[in-house]
Nucleic acid binder design. Structure first.
Lengths: 154, 154
DNA sequence: TTTAAAATTAATAACGATTATTATTTATAT
DNA sequence: ATATAAATAATAATCGTTATTAATTTTAAA
């Protein structure tokens, strides 16, 4: 039996994640927390986040941008991801009724839960000129490659 | 204007992905293709897969196990992920009607598409004893940590 | 209130997945 | 045939994450 001991770093990580409405990465959280704990180690942030996930106190998810995001809200809800700026927002809609049941028809085995990510362009990014509203772009995104400019040679 | 030139490596990558019903990672594909092209480079596999994604010929997705997977089927469908063995199977059900419309109510901006991942335990893994049916386990999975054995100290 | 055991930490090394670089090879238009 | 541009193999570099370790901190018990 492993006994969990108090640590002010862990409390700070929880508190910091709780008061943010975005869905920060471990590194973003690390940057925030260093204001309060200038000596905290990135490894400590990762270790505690994973511990909190395992304890069921927070959630971890990956939306396709190559890094994991963390969410203090463990209640069931979905996410919207902006393809331009990468911003992730909550979609507090209730689970489509019978979704898992409908899926189960095609699955041999047991379905425990599911996630939905909606992708598109957020309002801020839709205003022309605003090329980035938050931070990183989605991996393999548009800016780097324009399929319109490709042509299969004769 | 960039002109796409034929390459037997790229054709092989497409053909190999097409005939597989799983959803291989770049590395798994690399292993398969080396039977035919023993000198192919892992970088070539990655570069061509990303090119094919940008051209819209294949799909790339991340289901939370830390590595990207590729899918030759670009038609809309969902996926089931086994938490024990990591196997990913198609769920050919049609998009829940009105799902994006329902989500749009909570989003300022435009929803273009969505993905759904169902998680659970596949039939093979449910048979006790069979601890692994395919390959890697899901990241941060159960085996490594048992929350039941944790206790907040007094 | 010391003491001791175990958990946590900071620092850093190691790791796996992916991308970038570069010199060489290959495909294609002329 | 030749020139040009794209694709390649090899390899280095990068990024996100996990593992290791010696030192520190928490906690229970003496």
């Amino acid at each position: 039996m492993k006994t969990l001991k108090y640590s002010r770093q862990r409390e700070s990580i929880k508190a910091c994640l709780m008061r943010r409405k975005d869905h920060p990465t471990a590194d973003a959280l690390y940057t925030s927390i260093r204001e309060q704990f200038p000596n905290i180690s990135l490894g400590t942030v990762y270790r505690n986040l994973n511990l909190l996930v395992d304890l069921g106190e927070i959630r971890k998810f990956s939306c396709g941008d190559g890094t994991d995001h963390f969410d203090y809200d463990t209640s069931p809800h979905y996410h919207f991801v902006c393809r331009r700026c990468g911003r992730i927002t909550d979609i507090p809609m209730e689970a489509a009724s019978g979704l898992e049941e409908k899926a189960a028809v095609h699955v041999e085995g047991t379905i425990e839960d599911h996630t939905i990510f909606f992708y598109g362009v957020c309002a801020d990014c839709q205003q022309e000129g605003k090329r980035s509203a938050g931070g990183g772009r989605i991996k393999g995104g548009a800016e780097s490659f324009d399929p319109e400019n490709f042509q299969i040679s004769s």
